[in-house]
Design a protein around this nucleic acid. Structure first.
Lengths: 185, 185
DNA sequence: AATCAGATTGACTAATCAGTCAATATTCTA
DNA sequence: TAGAATATTGACTGATTAGTCAATCTGATT
């Protein structure tokens, strides 16, 4: 594995464990088993490393979720699949979840960056389609997207605090009901 | 105003602007117009300052919202009042909103701390009452509470990015509809 | 007036950290 | 194979930071 990859993996882990600022670049390099200098060879600044990490995560989330939506699905099925895949991705990658929460609530984040990601674009298309079909509430599509993201976040947070429900498919479906009822007409 | 208060006000402002770690204690003291030493006289460590700030904010949110719920209100009215008051409090105190988002997504935060606040206790009581009355979905009350909080957060984030709607009461009512539909039976 | 506890100061320190750089190693290309 | 380009090292630095401390001030109590 190349050293850029190694740095990104270690960075994700340490950032999630200790936050952006409590994690020294030197520690990241050490954990990755590479020299201090090579980190700055690939990432000019610590901020750039953090930004790239975020973009990479969003890309991975996109690929993971988009793959699971099949062509002939109804709109509700597609949204359900997207919701469940997001939930499971976040449950399976707890470090990435923490990292993303931190990033999206930091000064690094803005709506511009957010709106341009393929994951958000895909979600927006679904929202618009649903509004056109009269299935979803007639509100700005971006609001529906953010509502769904927020509900995924709430669900993940709840399941982490109450892991006894994490494997219960019925309970997950119940969680989806809350999200769906929020956006459906 | 006593110097402890001055420190807390400056800290809230600077933390929200630059995050916990980019804000030096010395800068907080300077902004507050007090000496470096007095900050550590009142708050043994920077972490304690951050924790106290959070508790203080939650208390203030509780007072602000609880005051507006009147005795004879129906459950839906009470929840609406709570929701709207929370929304407005967050809109009117943008620094506090940012601070709270950062705190609740940092390692400082855990469910224990969260669940013990009066604000959450009050929300929990409403949720339980609603379930008993058959008005709200029969899911764990804490899930309903977190869902409502999440929806407030989503609404605030959306309104900040689209300020043209911020003064529109109809739009706010529309936002409440999404939240209400999520939790109602 | 004498005493005392708490408030307040700001210079100081030891540690930490992001980023640099000159040197060396490795890989690629012609 | 020569030479260019890129990868890699790790010691180093200048800046910043949380927290300390000895000294002074203030106001209340006896």
């Amino acid at each position: 594995m190349d050293k850029k990859q190694k740095v990104m993996i270690s960075a994700r882990k340490l950032f999630a464990e200790n936050g952006f600022y409590s994690t020294a670049t030197a520690k990241i390099a050490k954990e990755a088993g590479v020299s201090n200098g090579i980190l700055f060879h690939y990432f000019n600044t610590k901020d750039i490393l953090i930004q790239e990490l975020y973009n990479d995560l969003k890309d991975r989330l996109f690929k993971y979720t988009a793959d699971q939506i099949y062509k002939g699905a109804t709109l509700k099925e597609s949204i359900y699949t997207l919701w469940l895949a997001s939930l499971e991705w976040n449950m399976e990658n707890p470090e990435d979840f923490v990292f993303m929460r931190q990033f999206e609530n930091s000064h690094y984040f803005n709506e511009q960056i957010y709106g341009n990601h393929r994951f958000v674009q895909m979600s927006l298309e679904l929202a618009e389609k649903g509004i056109d079909q009269g299935i979803l509430k007639k509100v700005p599509p971006m609001l529906l997207v953010q509502t769904m993201s927020g509900m995924v976040e709430t669900s993940v947070t709840y399941l982490k605090a109450h892991p006894e429900n994490a494997a219960n498919q019925d309970f997950k479906d119940r969680l989806f009901e809350l999200a769906w009822d929020a956006i459906k007409k």
